[in-house]
Each structure stands twice: as C-alpha cells, then as structure tokens.
Amino acid sequence: MSFLKTYITEVYGAVKSLLTGMKLTGYYFTHPKEIITEEYPDNRLTLKMADRFRGEVVMKHDDNNEHACTGCSACELACPNGTIKIINKFEINAEGKKKKAIDAFVYHLELCTMCNLCIEACPTDAIKMAQTFEHSVYDRRLLTKQLNLPGSKIREGVE
C-alpha cells in the first residue's frame, strides 16, 4: 500500500504546485491595475528622460549663436572610436592676429557609444549630452551631424 500512498501524495503535490502557479497568474489576470505599461508614442509629451541620460552629444549655443568650443580637439582625442572630427580654420580677428576656430564640429551619431568621455575631456564645457533618443532615420548619412550651428562663433573670453 505504501506504493499507492506515495503515488497519491505525488499526484496531490503536483496538482497543488500547479494550482499555486495558476493562482498567481490568475491574480494578475483579475487585477488589471498591476499593468505597468507606459504607452510610448502617446506619452511623448509627458515623457521625461533622467537628467543624466546620454542620448547624443550636442553643442551648447547661447542666444547670440555663440558657443564655447575652441577647437582644441581634446574630445576628438578622448573619443575611443573616432566619433568626433574637428575641422579647424584660422580667422583673423580684430587685432589682426590669426586665431584658431572651428570650421565644423563633425559628429558621427551612428558611431557614438554615449560613453561620456568627450564631455569629461572638454576643458571649456562646450559640449554636453542631450536627452533626445528618437534617432531613427531612413538613411544613415543623416546621422552624421555638424554640431556647430551655421554662422555661430566662439564666445568672447573663452580660451
């Protein structure tokens, strides 16, 4: 009879364990308030990324269309995979001296790994991480960006 007894306890234990699982899923089925889905494209207006979230590199421009990038290429050197290319030009300023300034701050978003090393390296705090993340495009050439705005120039006093 001991065989029969173990057989029955086995069946009982098995059924009980299965019912425990079903109770849990049943609980979630009957409690729709447990649903945690955030509806992305609908909550786009209220969706706020964390302050430190690293979406892409942008260059800070003020109202006069001036930035703080001196073209020292510290970020270019710090970048582990050549995401940033700085093309410099020489301007003649008011005193007649030649001065280095950036012509184009080329940023390859398609290569960027958001590691934050360029931001750490920048001595003049000219670039920062933006919280944007919607980077889908149909053509990957669109991901190569020029960060300095057209016509922008370096802010006075930044060396």
């Binding site: 899923t25 979630y28 089925f29 729709p32 447990e34 649903i35 945690i36 889905t37 509806e39």
Partner: peptide, 10 residues
C-alpha cells in the same frame, strides 16, 4: 489579450 493581462501589459 489574455496573455497580455496575465503578463501585466496592455
């Protein structure tokens, strides 16, 4: 739908 509600999604 049943799967979704059990799996706490929409």
């Amino acid at each position: 739908k049943v799967a979704a509600v059990i799996q706490i999604r929409l």
